[in-house]
């Protein structure tokens, strides 16, 4: 039903699109940060958003779960459809939206609580466990899913901030998946981590793909190539092109994309 809107996108089945955006503009006060983004994000795949700093990829990500609402003066226009429903519809409950669309941030941000309480936070507020035992089961399952359980099983009462950076980020992933969302947004989840921790996280993302629709913002082209099935390239607040990752990296259709992925800067590029 949304196919008629698709213009320069390699078609994916409308049924497979978990999220479709149409003409999304984002403003921060008088400054426009995103210009008419149309993008389809397929179900149960990893979609990578790449582009130089300040290109709007994080802004786009934060528009999906309406985290831009928390910034004073931010305004979003256009449509972002989650299963065909506009998330900016005034009748939509933002609390429900964010329960369905989880998010992992660039810098690990565990709450100043115990490891257990960090993971239990979402299930608690959403009332997903009827008993303490059930809650413990959710926590253990989520920690296990995030590949952290074996490392912390003896000290679930230790503060989340006592973990190493990579562990903290996996704790945040565990926290995000404990509410069993449909979509997982990841904003450069490995940028603050060392290579080993990054590898662990990337493996985890690949495993999570089976159950979640994942959108990941990344600075690293290699990471995008490694973890994603589809890639969207942003530049100066516009979506330049998107398609299967392999295609984008081997045969980009746009000159800007090619310059970016081959490492040529915009300044060296001859005028259009």
């Amino acid at each position: 039903m949304n196919q008629s809107f698709q213009t320069h996108v390699a078609p994916i089945g409308a049924a497979a699109a978990k999220i479709s955006t149409r003409g999304v503009d984002v403003f921060y006060g008088p400054k426009q940060a995103l210009f008419g983004v149309d993008l389809d994000i397929p179900r149960n795949q990893v979609t990578a958003l790449i582009g130089p700093s300040g290109c709007g990829k994080s802004t786009f990500l934060r528009a999906i779960n309406r985290m831009n609402d928390t910034i004073a003066g931010a305004r979003v226009e256009g449509e972002i459809l989650l299963d065909g429903e506009n998330v900016y519809d005034p009748v939509l409950d933002v609390v429900e939206l964010r329960a369905r669309v989880g998010m992992v941030f660039q810098k690990p941000n565990p709450f100043p609580k115990s490891i257990f309480e960090n993971v239990a936070y979402g299930p608690r507020i959403h009332g997903m466990a009827r008993s303490r035992a059930e809650l413990a089961e959710i926590v253990v399952r989520s920690l296990r899913r995030a590949g952290l359980f074996e490392e912390v099983k003896d000290r679930l009462d230790a503060p989340g901030t006592s973990l190493s950076g990579g562990q903290q980020q996996r704790l945040c992933i565990a926290r995000a998946i404990a509410t069993r969302p449909e979509v997982l947004l990841m904003d450069e989840p490995a940028s603050a981590l060392d290579p080993i921790a990054t590898a662990v996280i990337e493996e985890l993302i690949d495993e999570l793909r089976a159950n979640y629709t994942i959108v990941i913002v990344t600075h690293s082209m290699q990471q995008a190539a490694r973890v994603s099935q589809r890639t969207a390239f942003f530049h100066l607040g516009r979506l330049i092109e998107d398609g299967p990752t392999a295609e984008i990296f081997s045969t980009p259709r746009r000159r800007q994309t090619e310059d970016y992925i081959t490492g040529r800067s915009a300044a060296q590029r001859p005028g259009p």
Binding site: V95, E96, R100, N211
Partner: peptide, 19 residues
């Protein structure tokens, strides 16, 4: 590991309470 039912009657009622 399927997504949790964040929509529907029970979840809806709970959210109303939280709001």
């Amino acid at each position: 590991n399927a997504p949790a039912p964040h929509r529907g009657g029970a979840a809806e009622a709970r959210r109303r309470r939280r709001h």
